[in-house]
Amino acid sequence: MFGFKNEEERRIAVESIVKDEWDMFQKVQNIGGRAGCQNDWNTFYIMRASQYSAWNDLMLKSYAKDLKDAAEQGRNLITEKYAYMMEYTDPLYFKRELEPHLPQLDLETMNMVEEISWYLVDCEKELAKAFPKLAGAGRPIEEAGGFTSLQSYAKGELKTYSRNTLELYLDHVRANRAAGKNLAFTVQDTTVKMYGYASMEDAERKL
Rank of each mutant, 00 (worst) to 15 (best):
D106E: 13
T109S: 12
L107M: 10
M194S: 03
V173T: 12
E124I: 03
A179P: 03
V28E: 05
A128P: 02
F44K: 10
E21K: 12
E114W: 06
E157H: 01
R139H: 09
L168S: 04
Q26V: 00
A184C: 09
S62A: 14
E124H: 07
I78P: 02
D122M: 07
R174M: 05
E21M: 14
F94C: 02
F131T: 01
E167F: 01
A137Y: 03
P140G: 07
G36D: 05
P132A: 00
G156E: 11
W41E: 08
G156T: 08
E126F: 01
A70D: 05
E201I: 11
I31A: 11
A184Q: 13
G136C: 04
A13Y: 04
T79G: 08
I46A: 13
N182M: 01
Q73S: 14
Q73K: 15
S149H: 04
D20V: 06
T160C: 12
G32C: 15
F147H: 12
K5C: 08
P100K: 09
T186K: 09
D23Y: 11
E201T: 10
M112N: 07
I78D: 02
M47L: 14
E204M: 03
D202P: 06
Y52P: 02
I31G: 01
N39T: 13
G74M: 07
F147Q: 14
K19I: 07
Q73W: 03
R11I: 09
N42T: 14
R48K: 13
G180R: 07
L150C: 08
Y84I: 05
F131W: 06
E204F: 00
I78G: 03
A130H: 04
L60R: 09
L150Y: 13
W22K: 06
Q26P: 00
A175E: 14
R48C: 05
Y82N: 07
V14S: 00
L60E: 12
T148W: 06
L107N: 11
N111W: 09
L150V: 01
F131Q: 00
N56C: 03
R96M: 15
P91S: 06
E15L: 10
G36A: 06
A175H: 06
S199L: 11
P132C: 02
E80L: 13
E9H: 02
P100Q: 05
R163L: 06
D57R: 00
E142A: 14
N176Q: 11
I31K: 14
G138K: 04
V113T: 02
R75F: 02
C37D: 10
R34I: 12
K61W: 01
A179T: 03
C37Q: 12
N6D: 15
G146N: 07
K27G: 01
K181W: 02
R205V: 05
T160A: 09
M86A: 13
K27T: 09
E143I: 15
N6Q: 05
G196F: 03
